[in-house]
Design a protein around this nucleic acid. Structure first.
Lengths: 220, 220
DNA sequence: CGACATATTGATATCCATCAAACCGGGTGG
DNA sequence: CCACCCGGTTTGATGGATATCAATATGTCG
């Protein structure tokens, strides 16, 4: 994996709350490009400056399960292991801040503050995974789709219109469904007056009724 | 939650690798008893001395998703939070070693060794959750069931016969299936000569062909 | 404008859930 | 000891939610 040493920043990586300088550098991936592959040696930790990333596992025959979508500000690739446990790809053009995984680990080993932040991040991922297992194991297609829009709405907040960077295929592989089923579920929510589309593309969505959207989901 | 101060041990909790003494005490739960509920304040961390535990989340209408089964030697209830994110119940009569979560956290805050072990445990849970999401989102009933037996076989190892403490309902709620579907999948594996039953109960299983069992599963 | 990717919509198939009944072992009490 | 019940499991018949297959829009980009 080639990494240019462009514009090495001098700030500490905010996401880790360390006051030690861990010289990071930025890099940009084009839409669809692989950031790292499953079982690749984990050389870096990534913080998204702009764009969006999907991380996933897949079976030998191609079936794919997306673990998570990472948006601006998110940190990913922190595997606490020598090798990545999944593949990461840029969903759209994405700029990330890279931090050397090795030096990062060295700092982490001795610094309780960094360790605590690592632990917090890992715990947050675990929490998300637990909720997602409930979704995948026990929710209906409509509930999953509503839950997805609900989640994205909460994360992207601050704007009136929800702009989804990912395709229907990505959504389907995140929710354990097919693209057709996702499409039908979204159509249903539209018919019911819970959401609306803006612009020409189907990825710009307005949530008309957050209460009813949450009701279509089934929170624990 | 009532906790008797019986036989307070003096050893450090092995699972955490700390050399500081965190006075633990033992407690026994009868089959089916709740150890803690989702959203309960997290007062303790648990290490299983004998028995088995299920942890799960459920939806308001009762649908249930079991995150994980915990067997002898496993540590659970480490939520790194003030409240438990799921419910824990004893599957069979279970004895656990309790460690006060508060004092544990105090030690953890400053001790890099304890923090690293916490991180390792959390990472392992996350890893398991990621694999399980792939199972729940993308595998067939037969693949799920084979994966379950494979997992249990690996964990329980050391014996010839696999003795499952959990009911078909538990297995179903772990795999995102119904009990009938689990039963049929197990029957199929039996017909195919991959597994066999011993004893009178259906929970004593012999793996006849580990290779073929792994093939029914689909490893990434 | 045309070609290709992405999304929707419709028709049909399939896997698994649901409903229902039988089975089985284990306890209990006569 | 056996009859009975009871929870758990298996097995069978049917239905339904979602996958699959196919055709049609719609948008994107050269």
């Amino acid at each position: 994996m080639y990494v240019p040493s462009t514009k090495p920043g001098t700030d500490s990586l905010q996401g880790f709350g360390s006051d030690r300088a861990i010289a990071p550098s930025d890099f940009t991936y084009k839409k669809g490009k692989t950031i790292f592959l499953q079982d690749d040696p984990a050389k870096y930790v990534y913080e998204i400056k702009s764009g969006a990333v999907r991380t996933y596992k897949s079976l030998p025959d191609g079936r794919r399960q997306i673990n998570a979508f990472h948006l601006q500000g998110d940190v990913f690739g922190v595997d606490n292991e020598k090798f990545h446990r999944f593949t990461a790809e840029a969903i759209v053009q994405t700029t990330v801040r890279l931090v050397s995984h090795g030096s990062f680990n060295m700092v982490a080993e001795s610094d309780p503050v960094v360790l605590q932040n690592l632990l917090r991040m890992t715990t947050r991922s675990l929490q998300h995974a637990e909720n997602h297992m409930l979704l995948l194991g026990r929710k209906t297609a409509l509930e999953r789709t509503a839950a997805f829009l609900h989640e994205m709405d909460e994360r992207a907040a601050a704007t009136d219109v929800l702009s989804l960077p990912m395709s229907r295929r990505d959504i389907a592989d995140y929710l354990g469904l097919t693209i057709e089923t996702v499409s039908r579920a979204v159509a249903k929510l539209h018919c019911e007056g819970v959401i609306d589309f803006v612009g020409s593309t189907q990825r710009e969505i307005v949530i008309l009724d957050r209460k009813r959207l949450a009701a279509f989901d089934q929170q624990p």
